[in-house]
Design a protein around this nucleic acid. Structure first.
Lengths: 220, 220
DNA sequence: CGGCCAATTGGCAGGCACTGACATAATTCT
DNA sequence: AGAATTATGTCAGTGCCTGCCAATTGGCCG
């Protein structure tokens, strides 16, 4: 049950009053954790402190999140889910690369709402930089992204009617695309400041460099 | 001092008798660890067991490796160092993408010697699959690769006489390239069997798919 | 409304990764 | 050979994470 929620938070909850409370507890844990991380750093924050701030026991924390990393990455995972949903809603006629490009830009537009339903945007931005600068979190984030990549490749293969076991193009395309996206968000984070709008602009700029970068002669 | 060894094992050690003993201890720790991992799995192997198998104390283990992940990834790191060295020895006239492609193929040729100086090749291959299938190790591996990517981008920028802060092409190229390499080695690992020669073939096949995958129309 | 069923939570004990501090042993240098 | 440096061992302690069982809570039906 937790696995389902963790992979992709169902939007249409058929739930009653109980589910609402669980969601509130979860959101409170995320908010408490991210605030503590931003204030004291990731490693200098203990799970006990997070649980206490959210007024639950440590044991309950671990029923909502498999480990300390997961709560730190919770909002990024939410954005990833949004990205996947956006890609799936793209017109079937679109070619693979334009579909990915369009989905990513659409995601940056819609991410604000998803984020602010749980935490202030500023706190999300702080967390973003924290992940990049905390080895353990960066590792977990990259692993999470590799899972997203696999889903993206499967979706691209489905759109094109290909068997991803036979044709390597879906995986190759997604790998190259995801690599560029990582570099993009990384450069965005290093700029220190800048909101989601800046990220949108940078995404366009970097994606447009893919062709030139693969060209043989860079002086041309 | 450990940081230096960890980042890139110096080939020309100006060492005496002491350095040799340290290297022996380190190699023994790696071998003991990888054998235990292959036999019992990564999580079911404790650091105490590794230390005991190598006949040192647990505390000494942590003086050679910052954490349990690092010993599991030690051989991959050695291959990464070889890859960087191979790229640096490429002719300056070569364009970026051919240089990367040539370096990777050269690395697969030379990797055997580097590996077998420490562990049997078969054990390395086992470890490879273990990393892919162990979430914690995969995360650490991906983070390590992202550091390699950064060094690659700096080297490409240097070769082309560019400032990587101004021109995004080095980072973009390396990101796309590294993404394809990840997919390649992953597909190789999923095939279950196959040695380094098969990996070499697969690398060529996947890299040749980069252009087609980025093309607009896949039916052409 | 009362009470049963299922799900959520808390508390406790314990394993394991990892670290700092200090003592001991081994190398190297003079 | 003795002094200085460096590697190693031991010990205690913190923090992440898990299994287990008891207690509480929410949902449902008679």
């Amino acid at each position: 049950m937790h696995a389902i929620e963790g992979a992709a938070a169902r939007s249409g909850a058929p739930s009653g009053l109980r589910e609402r409370k669980k969601r509130r507890t979860r959101d409170t844990l995320i908010r408490s954790a991210l605030e503590l991380f931003a204030r004291k750093g990731y490693e200098r924050t203990t799970v006990d402190e997070i649980a206490e701030a959210a007024e639950v026991s440590q044991r309950t924390f671990f029923r909502y999140f498999a480990n300390k990393e997961e709560v730190a990455l919770a909002m990024q995972t939410a954005v990833d889910d949004l990205f996947l949903a956006t890609l799936r809603s793209r017109p079937a006629a679109e070619a693979p690369l334009p579909a990915l490009r369009g989905a990513v830009l659409g995601t940056w537009d819609g991410a604000r709402a998803v984020i602010e339903a749980v935490v202030p945007l500023e706190l999300f931005l702080c967390t973003y930089r924290l992940i990049e600068s905390t080895p353990q979190l960066l590792a977990a984030r990259l692993r999470s992204l590799s899972e997203v990549e696999e889903l993206l490749a499967l979706e691209i293969a489905r759109r094109e009617g290909l068997d991803p076991r036979t044709d390597p193009r879906p995986h190759v395309l997604v790998a190259a695309f995801a690599g560029v996206m990582r570099v993009t968000t990384r450069a965005w984070g290093e700029r220190g400041e800048g909101g989601l709008d800046d990220l949108r602009e940078l995404t366009v700029a970097y994606l447009d460099q893919l062709g030139p970068a693969l060209a043989e002669n860079w002086r041309a």
